[in-house]
Simulated assay, not measured.
Amino acid sequence: MKNLYLIAYLDLKESLRAKWFVVYSLVFGGLIALFFIAGVTESQVMGFSGLSRLLLMYIQITIVILPIFILITTVRSISGDRDSNVLEYMLSFPISLKQYYWGKVIGRFITVFLPVFFAMVIAIIYGAFKGAAIPWNIFFLYTGLLFAMSSAFLGIAFFISSFVKSSEVALGLSFFIWIFLLAFIDIALISLMMQERMSSGLIIFISLINPMEIFRVAAISLFDPQLTVMGPVAFYILDSMSQSVFVLVSIGYPLILGLVFAFLGYKIFEKKDLV
Results as ranks from 00 to 15, higher is better:
145 L>C: 04
164 V>I: 15
137 N>R: 15
155 G>S: 04
146 L>S: 06
144 G>H: 09
165 K>Q: 14
160 I>M: 12
141 L>T: 09
153 F>H: 00
160 I>D: 06
139 F>C: 07
167 S>D: 12
144 G>M: 10
160 I>N: 05
151 S>I: 06
154 L>S: 01
140 F>L: 15
156 I>L: 09
167 S>G: 14
161 S>G: 06
154 L>G: 00
151 S>D: 05
167 S>W: 05
134 I>P: 00
149 M>H: 08
165 K>A: 04
156 I>A: 14
148 A>R: 02
142 Y>G: 08
135 P>G: 13
137 N>K: 13
159 F>A: 05
141 L>S: 07
161 S>C: 01
164 V>C: 11
158 F>G: 00
149 M>C: 13
140 F>S: 14
137 N>S: 15
137 N>A: 11
144 G>N: 12
138 I>W: 06
138 I>T: 06
142 Y>D: 10
135 P>S: 15
162 S>C: 04
160 I>Q: 10
144 G>A: 06
148 A>S: 09
138 I>A: 12
138 I>Q: 10
145 L>T: 05
167 S>T: 09
146 L>Q: 12
138 I>H: 09
152 A>G: 03
153 F>G: 00
157 A>Q: 05
164 V>D: 08
139 F>N: 08
161 S>H: 04
158 F>M: 11
136 W>P: 01
138 I>F: 02
163 F>M: 07
150 S>D: 01
140 F>W: 12
165 K>Y: 13
147 F>P: 02
166 S>Y: 07
162 S>W: 07
146 L>I: 11
142 Y>T: 08
150 S>H: 05
139 F>W: 04
160 I>V: 09
155 G>P: 03
159 F>D: 04
136 W>Y: 13
158 F>D: 00
146 L>G: 05
132 A>M: 06
165 K>V: 05
141 L>M: 08
158 F>S: 00
145 L>P: 01
147 F>T: 11
140 F>R: 13
135 P>K: 14
160 I>K: 10
140 F>K: 15
147 F>E: 09
156 I>S: 08
156 I>K: 03
153 F>T: 00
145 L>E: 04
154 L>R: 01
133 A>Q: 14
